[in-house]
């Protein structure tokens, strides 16, 4: 039962912080709210028996990506409410569009025919061992390939960020 309450709580937090990310005026606040959202999501991961993933999630997102965000914000000196005034029309249309997307998505998901898991329930799939098996056996190729991705991103980011020698 407590798990159910945990679900509700974490879901509420995730949604609320998510909204705060979007709605806060100050970018730094947004970043912080996003970190909180990530924690809420990490909590969900734990609930879902994906402990390793939860840890990675915190490390990668909260630890790396968000720091990067903060770093950029600081570097570019964006930590103020510098956003120009948005017209009501833009606000309304954004709300309407996102709202209708939500409605449509929910509506199309709602009538779901129950998904019947083919496997026996196994609470251990989220363990490192299982994940490692899958990742380095079945998903070895994508794993290797993602190195190309990261390399490309790295090269690219460096190339863009460095000052061009004129």
């Amino acid at each position: 039962m407590i798990i159910t309450y945990m679900f509700y709580l974490l879901s509420f937090l995730a949604i609320m912080f998510g909204l705060m990310v979007v709605l806060s005026k100050n970018p730094v606040h947004s970043v912080l709210y996003l970190v909180l959202t990530f924690f809420a999501i990490a909590g969900h991961y734990v609930l879902l028996n994906a402990q390793f993933l939860a840890a990675v999630h915190i490390i990668v997102y909260a630890g790396a990506i968000m720091v990067l965000f903060l770093y950029i914000i600081m570097m570019l000196n964006l930590n103020k409410e510098a956003e120009p005034h948005k017209s009501l029309w833009i606000k309304a249309s954004a709300a309407v569009a996102a709202g209708s997307l939500l409605v449509v998505l929910v509506a199309s998901i709602k009538g779901t025919v129950a998904i019947t898991p083919s496997n026996e329930f196994n609470p251990n799939i989220g363990l490192i061992e299982n994940l490692g098996q899958t990742l380095f056996k079945d998903y070895l190729l994508p794993f290797e390939v993602s190195s190309v991705l990261l390399l490309a991103a790295m090269v690219g980011a460096v190339m863009l960020a460095k000052k061009s020698i004129k």
Partner: peptide, 30 residues
């Protein structure tokens, strides 16, 4: 993944994370 007791889903999350990180890096560089 949890519901289906299938670890592929979680592995996929790794890839998404990698891509997200790459995108953020590139995005912030841009």
């Amino acid at each position: 993944s949890s519901y289906l007791s299938d670890s592929k889903g979680q592995v996929f999350v790794f890839f998404i994370m990698a891509v997200a990180a790459a995108e953020v890096a590139v995005g912030l560089a841009i």
